[in-house]
Design a protein around this nucleic acid. Structure first.
Lengths: 194, 194
DNA sequence: TTCTAAGTAGAAGGAACGGTCTACCTACTT
DNA sequence: AAGTAGGTAGACCGTTCCTTCTACTTAGAA
């Protein structure tokens, strides 16, 4: 006596799959990956076990999809900022503020990638590779932004900025974002010399 | 037919207990807390289940003891540095180097407290309280050191230094300590103006 | 000497884990 | 009209989780 159903039988990107990733994003981030079981996941996504395993051969594949979704979100934000047509120098300030804003409003439980890394000690695992890949993208993107603004030592400054951002996300979680955001933005400007 | 035994029946601080904490310190740090089961713990500590639960009513109590041990180790290092009789200004540099050294040589898998926090979302849990307590001790100790060196804005600088240290530990884990240590020490001096 | 704290060994229990399986339904595509 | 991709429902399996239990040993303290 299936109640609503509605979207069964389509071929597109799959509602159920999207709901699983959305639920995973919420739960994995809020409570940790190992701490959230498949049972819980499918219950909150409103999906059956079979459906889950049809889309993701194992839980690890969902973890990967979760990190992928986070990655795409950040890349999207950067692309939007770059497309805004701001001048290179203004873009640097824009990025600093966007990162500060994200720490205060979106990611208040630390960095999804850092948190995940704490649960996966094996650096050669697919998950750790994904994390490393994301971090390298982030670092090199910052380097490009700094280079475009014609600031000195872009590579070095980008490294320092990654450091600071990591710190601010962790600090925002453990010590409260209100106190950390200004410290982050101030120190970032100081390090970049803007 | 118990083979060696030797230290059974004593009343002191208990060998078995010490071994459990030592093993926990290694395994929890290296592999994560949830990822290491009691079975594994007692096997590597060479202790039986009963002994384990005699000393620690639950696994969580061992986690607490593990964090306590880490806390004491760092407090000990600070106390030793303070007792070295270095001048206040030199002590600041000494602390920066000691933190850098720790990141490069001891804590190469991130910060034990930050990693633990990632696995315990409930801020009111005993573990998170212990973590908050440690962080506050660390921050205020840095503030004292900076104050003694008569540097400006000690509270603010201490906050920034905590931020940087967090970052360097995470970065050391995920991007390699060799690259991060110089960035950390350089940025720390820059922020403190020394 | 007796008591007790701290240890050994190993079985057991209930819950939760990730993952597989059967059986049926539905709607789009061909 | 037939085929198939994607969905539902729920039982089931082997493993591991944390924890408790009984039964015995050993050595220092009372």
């Amino acid at each position: 006596m299936g109640s609503m159903a509605s979207t069964t039988g389509s071929r597109g990107p799959s509602e159920a799959r999207a709901r699983l990733i959305r639920t995973a994003t919420e739960l994995f981030y809020a409570e940790g990956i190992t701490a959230v079981g498949v049972e819980r996941l499918i219950a909150e996504a409103g999906v059956t076990r079979v459906t889950f395993y049809r889309h993701f051969p194992s839980k690890e594949d969902l973890v990967l999809a979760y990190l992928q979704a986070e990655d795409e979100a950040i890349q999207g934000a950067f692309a939007a900022a770059a497309a805004s047509g701001a001048e290179p120098r203004a873009l640097v300030e824009l990025v600093i503020q966007a990162l500060g804003d994200d720490i205060e409003r979106q990611h208040t439980r630390g960095c999804p990638f850092i948190n995940a890394a704490a649960e996966y000690p094996d650096a050669s695992s697919p998950i750790r590779k994904k994390i490393a890949e994301h971090r390298e993208w982030f670092r090199s993107t910052l380097e490009q932004v700094i280079t475009a603004a014609e600031l000195p030592d872009p590579a070095e400054k980008a490294g320092a900025l990654v450091l600071l951002r990591d710190a601010a996300m962790v600090g925002g979680y453990l010590d409260g974002p209100e106190a950390v955001r200004p410290t982050f933005e101030r120190t970032a400007r100081e390090v970049l010399g803007v």
